[in-house]
Every structure is written in structure tokens, then in C-alpha cells.
Simulated assay, not measured.
Amino acid sequence: MKTRIVIPKVEPEAYKVLAVLNNYVEHSGLTKTHNDLIKIRASQTNGCAYCIDMHTKDARKHGETEQRIYALNAWRETPFFTDEERAILALTEEVTLIQNHVSDETYQAAAAILDERYLAQVIMAIINISAWNRIGIATGMQPSL
């Protein structure tokens, strides 16, 4: 696919606004592991090849294992993720697929494990990567070889 419009060149102010949200998430207190899992899983769910490529590379640099990265799209079927990570991944999927709504069960499971502030940070991280995924998909961004 050919890359389409380059938003930072055409609308730099809009891009800067999203970069502010990204900066907040990166410095919010979320662990690198949680943030990486959110980025990868939301990007898989949205089908953003550019972001999957970028964030799996970042996760490896942060110490994430190949095994967990490869199993992430089947996380429910593996023993590789903690209860906290499972709650975050379930929430990531439901917020990303918001047309199906976030179930009370998923929300309450996350709220039971995460404190209120951390839960808010997780939700903002999911919203952040979903916005970046939409830019990547809409503009045809491609991973490089």
C-alpha cells in the first residue's frame, strides 16, 4: 500500500495535540510492560501493521520475551500473563472494540486489581494507542524491512 497523507506535515498542530497525550501516557506511571502490552494488543486488534512492528520492537528492548509477544493474541489460552496483565488485556480489547461496549465484568475485574489512578492511566493508554493506530491505518503507514 502506498503511504497517503502525512498528517504532521499537513496539520502539525493536530499531530502535536496527540503527541501531548502520548507524552502523558509515557510519563503517567504505567509500567513499561503494561504500556507495551496495551500498545501491542490494541494494535493487533485494530490491525495496524506499522504499530505492531514498532511496539513489538520496543517491547523487546524493554525486556519483553518473544514467547509472550508471540502468544499475546491468544493471551487467554496461555499461562504467560499475570492476573493484573489479564485484566489490562481484557480492558484493552473491550475499549478498543468499543462498539461492543466495556462489560461490567471486565471493568470490575480491572477495578478490583488496579487502583483508581492506575485504571485511569490504563484507559488513557488504550485510547492513546487506538488514536495512533487509526492514523497509521488511515494514512497507510507501513513497517520498514
Rank of each mutant, 00 (worst) to 15 (best):
Ala110Pro: 01
Ala120Cys: 09
Arg117Gln: 14
Ile127Leu: 12
His62Ile: 02
Val6Trp: 08
Cys48Gln: 04
Tyr107Met: 08
Thr96Phe: 03
Val122Ala: 08
Asp115Tyr: 09
Val6Asn: 12
Gln142His: 09
Ala125Asn: 08
Ile88Glu: 02
Glu11Trp: 04
Met1Ile: 14
Ala125Phe: 02
Glu11Ser: 13
Ile52Arg: 08
Ala74Trp: 07
Thr56Leu: 06
Gly136Leu: 10
Gln142Ser: 06
Ile40Glu: 02
Ile7Leu: 15
Ala42Arg: 03
Tyr118Glu: 15
Met54Ser: 10
Met141Glu: 11
Ala131Ser: 15
His101Met: 13
Ile129Thr: 07
Ser28Pro: 08
Ala19His: 12
Ile88Leu: 04
Ser103Leu: 00
Gly29Leu: 02
Glu105Ala: 15
Leu97Tyr: 00
Trp75Leu: 00
Ala111Arg: 10
Ile40Asp: 03
Thr78Ser: 13
Glu105Phe: 06
Thr45His: 03
Ile113Pro: 00
Ala87Arg: 01
Ala109Tyr: 09
Thr56Val: 12
Asn23Pro: 00
Ala59Cys: 10
Ile5Ala: 14
Leu18Asp: 03
Asp115Gly: 09
Thr78Glu: 00
Ala125Ser: 14
Tyr70Gln: 11
Leu37Pro: 10
Leu72His: 01
Ala14Tyr: 12
Asn22Met: 05
Glu64Pro: 07
Glu105Gln: 11
Ala19Glu: 14
His101Cys: 08
Asn46Pro: 03
His34Thr: 10
Asp58Pro: 03
Tyr118Gly: 05
Ile98Gly: 06
Arg68Thr: 04
Pro143Ala: 09
Glu13Ala: 14
Ile7Phe: 12
Asn46Thr: 08
Arg60Val: 13
Gln67Met: 08
Lys16Gln: 15
Ala14Ser: 14
Ala138Gly: 15
Ile7Ala: 15
Arg68Leu: 07
Thr139His: 04
Ala19Arg: 15
Val102Phe: 07
Lys39Asn: 10
Gln108Phe: 07
Glu66Ser: 08
Tyr50Leu: 01
Thr96Gly: 02
Ala120Ile: 07
Thr139Asn: 05
Tyr107Arg: 05
Thr65Asp: 02
Ile38Cys: 02
Gln67Asn: 03
Val25Cys: 06
Asn35Asp: 11
Gln121Lys: 10
Val17Phe: 05
Thr139Cys: 07
Arg134Gln: 14
Asn133Gly: 11
Leu119Gln: 04
Ile69His: 02
Val6Leu: 12
Arg76Val: 00
Arg76Gln: 11
Lys16Leu: 13
Ser28Thr: 11
Ala14Phe: 13
Met1Ala: 15
Pro143Gly: 05
Leu97His: 02
Glu66Asn: 02
Val102Gly: 06
Gln108Asn: 13
Ala112Cys: 06
Gly140Ser: 02
Ile98Lys: 00
Leu21Gly: 10
Ile123Gln: 11
Ile5Val: 13
Glu94Thr: 07
Ile123Cys: 11
Phe80Tyr: 13
Ser130His: 04
Glu77Lys: 08
Arg76Met: 02
